[in-house]
């Protein structure tokens, strides 16, 4: 029987979080989950602040015991202040 060391387990737990984020109830494919040393970093853009909170809650639940850091941006819904000329 193979006995996983902690780092291996962490890798699979991170993979499971990625799968949960992509699954039916969440469907956030635009969030990246990376292992950075002993912590996990979440990056990407989400449509609303409530979805960012939801993703953070899931990450902390799935990765309990690991340090979760997040730099998730809420998409800007402002009209543009410039255009591009395509000559």
């Amino acid at each position: 029987m193979i006995e996983f060391t902690a780092p291996h387990e962490d890798e699979y737990r991170i993979a499971r979080l990625r799968e949960r984020l992509a699954a039916d109830d969440v469907a956030e494919l635009g969030v990246q989950v990376e292992q950075r040393g002993t912590s996990v970093l979440l990056t990407g853009t989400v449509p609303t602040a409530s979805r960012r909170d939801e993703i953070l809650r899931l990450a902390r639940e799935e990765l309990a015991g690991l340090t979760v850091r997040a730099d998730l941006v809420v998409a800007c819904a402002d009209a543009p202040d410039r255009w591009e000329e395509l000559p």
Binding site: G30, G44, T45, P47, V73, A75, C76, A77, D78, A79, P80, R82, W83, E84, E85, L86
Partner: peptide
């Protein structure tokens, strides 16, 4: 939208 960082992009052809 995450790429353009706005509600929409504008192009003039």
């Amino acid at each position: 939208q995450p790429v353009i960082g706005r509600a929409f992009a504008l192009y003039r052809l």
